[in-house]
């Protein structure tokens, strides 16, 4: 893993490790969601419209 010279911030060793673990678990969730979306399409089930990022968020 190579850190570019722009990265002046200390990411923290522990933070890197835990992040990879959590992200791997959650990535499964995202992949599953996408996968189910495809299955639903095959079965002809209508899914909710994808959110348009060009709209401002209501933060």
């Amino acid at each position: 893993m190579h850190f570019s010279p722009h990265l002046y911030l200390d990411p923290g060793s522990g933070s890197i490790l835990i992040q990879v673990v959590i992200a791997a678990l959650l990535g499964l969730g995202v992949a599953t969601r996408l996968f189910w979306g495809t299955i639903k399409k095959w079965l002809g089930i209508k899914s909710k419209p994808v959110e348009d990022d060009d709209d401002a968020d209501d933060n």
Binding site: M1, L17, V20, A23
Partner: peptide, 20 residues
Amino acid sequence: EVKSRSGSMSKQAMTGLIES
């Protein structure tokens, strides 16, 4: 030790992290 052990993170995994 961390640099060599940590493994990589796909874009999907990154997205999952942010959404979490």
